[in-house]
Design a protein around this nucleic acid. Sequence first.
DNA 1: CTCAGGATTCCCGCTCAATGGTAATCCTCC
DNA 2: GGAGGATTACCATTGAGCGGGAATCCTGAG
Lengths: 261, 261
Amino acid sequence: MANSASGESIIGRFVKIVSAFDDRHTSMTVAELGRRTGLPVTTTYRLVNDLLAERLLEREPGGDVHIGTRMWELVSRGSKMLGLREAALPFMEDVQAVVQHSTTLGILDSDEVLYIERLGSDKTIVDITKIAGRLPLHATSSGLVLLAHAPAAYQDSFLARPLTKFTETTLTEPSLLRRHLAEIRQRGFAAMPGVIVPESSGIAVPVFGPDNSVRAALSVVVPRNEENTPARVPVLMAAARGISRALGWRGELKGTLRQSH
Amino acid sequence: MANSASGESIIGRFVKIVSAFDDRHTSMTVAELGRRTGLPVTTTYRLVNDLLAERLLEREPGGDVHIGTRMWELVSRGSKMLGLREAALPFMEDVQAVVQHSTTLGILDSDEVLYIERLGSDKTIVDITKIAGRLPLHATSSGLVLLAHAPAAYQDSFLARPLTKFTETTLTEPSLLRRHLAEIRQRGFAAMPGVIVPESSGIAVPVFGPDNSVRAALSVVVPRNEENTPARVPVLMAAARGISRALGWRGELKGTLRQSH
DNA sequence: CTCAGGATTCCCGCTCAATGGTAATCCTCC
DNA sequence: GGAGGATTACCATTGAGCGGGAATCCTGAG
């Protein structure tokens, strides 16, 4: 693959370097970066210098480095995420104004929900969704929606794996889960009382793209005790339709409802 | 620098590739990518395959490639932008709720304003700010705020350059601009009637970091005819203080007001 | 002031991964 | 069926990347 003894390409190392940063470690010394990535010292320095030269990384006064503005800019500008986000945000603001708690937008990626946007104060309630954060598919309302509308083959392979049971209400039994997914497709939304964090409840609905496939899941998280949960659904659905339309969706063609089996 | 005949490092080519994508071209064929970047065909294919292997790029059914979810995720997760954004968003929502038009958050990068967040419907008014978009410093309210609070040395070098005059109200004469910047520092905000786009007006205020330096500019864009502009300022200022505090700012220490000369 | 431990930069010979031309193959519309 | 473009396959060449080791620079503790 590469000149390296370990046999990785530069791209691989680039990924290692970028991955070393997360919300908890947004900046660090080059030496530490070397330690976290496991790359040889000299190599780390050389690579970091290349990245600094391109402004993909930036050095701060203290000497620590962090992910560069340029990198964020390039990726954000060119990524399709921005389009989805732009389309969704106005509607999310509306939902947020009405529902008051926390509104998120998530997509299916690598067998997990990846949250790409989130509105709402975390002060009010425990809520573990973070932007650019991930959660398991079968344990979140967003995940269930995404899974429910995924291709049958994908569902099969996903359900074949052992699933972690987070609370008593987490469905892990394939057949039960499958039935639940069918229900979600029919009702058009998923509701999950306190799956990962028992105190909170999620409700999610699908967002469609032009080809009628599901692009994302729009969801709100509310405190569990708030038992007017069903009242939230119409608001969410209306917003999701708005987002879908902004993405070029032309309304559901009768009889074209996606079915997986 | 590299094995390449043209003498670029792989990192440089990586940047070229990512830069080939923007909001108008979020996906394209590999051949086109090669054309846009000017890289040799074979090289492009090899590099793209490496990137696909790491999921930094993704191939879509049609054969086109686009920037990968993984790339967006890694960069977003590790970038400091997220922290700033998270701190600012709740307050921006509040501003947006009151002011109704468009609320943006911009930072100073490479002698321009880089907008990192934006709320508000573009339906209501012409507004050219885009997320991950750039505008010149001296022609936007956000830019003027950022420039006004930048180190003196930076201001000097910036003012030494020739500045484009976008409309009659754009200040380009260094001495006049300097006086205007002083005014902005004193008043605590910048107001720009229709600088780039004549129909709209911007108001911006600074957001401070823990060390009392200016981290970003919070601004609203309103239609020009709306002449209650000054009324917006207090709202903006209050929000900016909130954001600053969320970033760890401990209130302005009397007498520590930044002065540039 | 000195000293220790860590961060950072220099140095340098080895080597194989990256390079990029050419040519073959695969698509996909007319 | 065939023209034009996209994509893959092949391959000889070589210098960019590699990484161990040592020197130097920092910084805070004693």
